[in-house]
Simulated assay, not measured.
Amino acid sequence: MSVIIKAAPLELMIIGGAALGAYIIANPMKVIKAGFKMSIKAMTAKGPQKQDYVELLQMMFQLFQAFRKEGPQGIEKHIEEPDKSDIFKAYPSFMHNHHAVHFLCDTMKITLSAEMSPYDVDDLLDADIKAIHHEEHMAVHAVQTVADGFPGLGIVAAVLGIVKTMAHLTDGVEKIGALVASALVGTMLGVFGAYGLIGPTATKMGADIDAEGRYLGCIKAAMVALQRGAPPIVCVEYARRSIMPEERPSFEEVDKATKEIKKAA
């Protein structure tokens, strides 16, 4: 380990510096920032869990109930200023998802201000999800490209080490062996970084995007059902059925959650 510990800082400086430079040169600033942000999130956060979906279904049921009872005027204050909404503030997991907040509120604004068929709403929300995912997938592709380049950069670092070694051919076998070992650390770090760290991070980023898409898809199912004129409980059931079985709350759990809202009302 002493050889690796001694050689690692210099090798990482060569590999990491080249990789960072390539990442910055190859991508626009918004993708660079998104890549760093999503990488940190991939390593520190989980996607929406069952409880997050229960809160989402509760929130939509409460919002749709207010819309049914009070009409557009009753929910206008909530969708115009979601940060000040009593309904939204009661569900922090939803409020922390800025994509979801704009996704829901902007859709309700347009459906209240213009006549739209359920098919139009469906197409509108699909286009929004596609646009959000396209931008995020650019960041995933950028990070994956860095991972793909890491082994090559490790070889570059190793070749530089061999070049250095060539100047010590008369210094004896032990000296040459130590220099070659240090050079090979670059190859090892390049391969390890690609397949043991950056590549898996990019894969997790893609999984997080898919999870976010399922969360938005749940909102979409409820919004389309609302546009068809379905009652709030049916809209929520459409949304519940769109959730993957592993994350989907049971009918009884949602029924209990909606009954709590009715009692509070």
Rank of each mutant, 00 (worst) to 15 (best):
G172H: 13
V254R: 01
G21W: 01
P151M: 09
P249N: 08
T165G: 10
K204Y: 08
G16D: 00
Q144G: 10
G17V: 07
K130N: 05
P245E: 04
A18Y: 01
V101T: 05
G206K: 13
G193M: 11
M108A: 06
I176Q: 12
K175G: 00
E260D: 11
L184S: 10
V236T: 07
A158K: 08
F150K: 09
K130S: 07
A147V: 13
K84M: 12
D255I: 08
G190K: 03
A178C: 06
A100Y: 13
I155F: 04
A45M: 10
G71E: 09
M166Y: 04
V143A: 14
K41D: 11
A131H: 14
A90G: 11
F64I: 09
K77Y: 10
Y215P: 01
K30P: 02
D86V: 14
V236H: 05
I32L: 03
M188P: 02
T203C: 02
I15C: 06
K109P: 07
D255V: 04
A157T: 04
D128E: 15
A264G: 04
D128F: 09
R68Y: 00
F64A: 13
A221F: 00
L12K: 04
V143R: 03
G71Y: 01
H98S: 12
L63Q: 07
Q51L: 07
T44F: 07
A207S: 13
A158I: 10
N27P: 01
S242K: 03
G71C: 06
A22L: 13
F94T: 08
S242A: 10
G16W: 07
A225E: 02
P9Y: 02
A66C: 15
L153H: 10
E80G: 08
D122A: 05
L12T: 05
A7H: 04
K33S: 11
L57C: 09
A181K: 11
S39L: 07
A42D: 06
H96A: 13
I209R: 03
Q62G: 07
D52S: 12
F36W: 07
I129L: 13
